[in-house]
Amino acid sequence: MRSANRVASLLLASALLIGGAMLALQALLLTLDRPTPLDTAGWFDALSGTRWRDPTVQTVAGGALLLGLAILVAQLRRWTPVRLRADERDGWYLHRRCVERRLADAASAVPGVRRARVRVRRRGGQWRPRVRATGDPAARAEIEFAVHQELHRLTAPRPGRIDVRLLPRRRPA
């Protein structure tokens, strides 16, 4: 969402800059009775020929309303935090993606486990790592141990429950 916002802001800024400059130029040339770079006769005819009750107007207005609602919901819902607080006292935070990658590497290093993915969320002041991996279901305890060890190495606080979901490896047909 953060990257999408950044890109959207860049597009909005460019549109404002280019659109504003063109509007200013066009209006200034009109004031001076000079030939203008944009021919606005088509727009003028379209706006003069469209009534408020036309389906086009309703479609555009409904689209704007829905787009606005979608953007509003996207902005107001809770975002996944970029970093996780490791300690209340010394202001130490760990970058969430880095922690997830490290935990995934630790889980993948367990024998019999392949392709581990880890997501870390904060619930009620505690970290909740969620591990998804392909491998032997008997390796659950070892994965939990590996994740605990890695979190300890990263000086992270003791996590709450570690949620491990192991999918058995698909056998070749």
């Binding site: 408020w52 509003l72 996207a74």
Partner: peptide, 23 residues
Amino acid sequence: HRLLWTIVALLLIAVGAAALAAS
């Protein structure tokens, strides 16, 4: 960015709702 896009969203909602009501 979040504030900017919340304002843009509210503007879109206001304009869209007004145009739809007029229509």
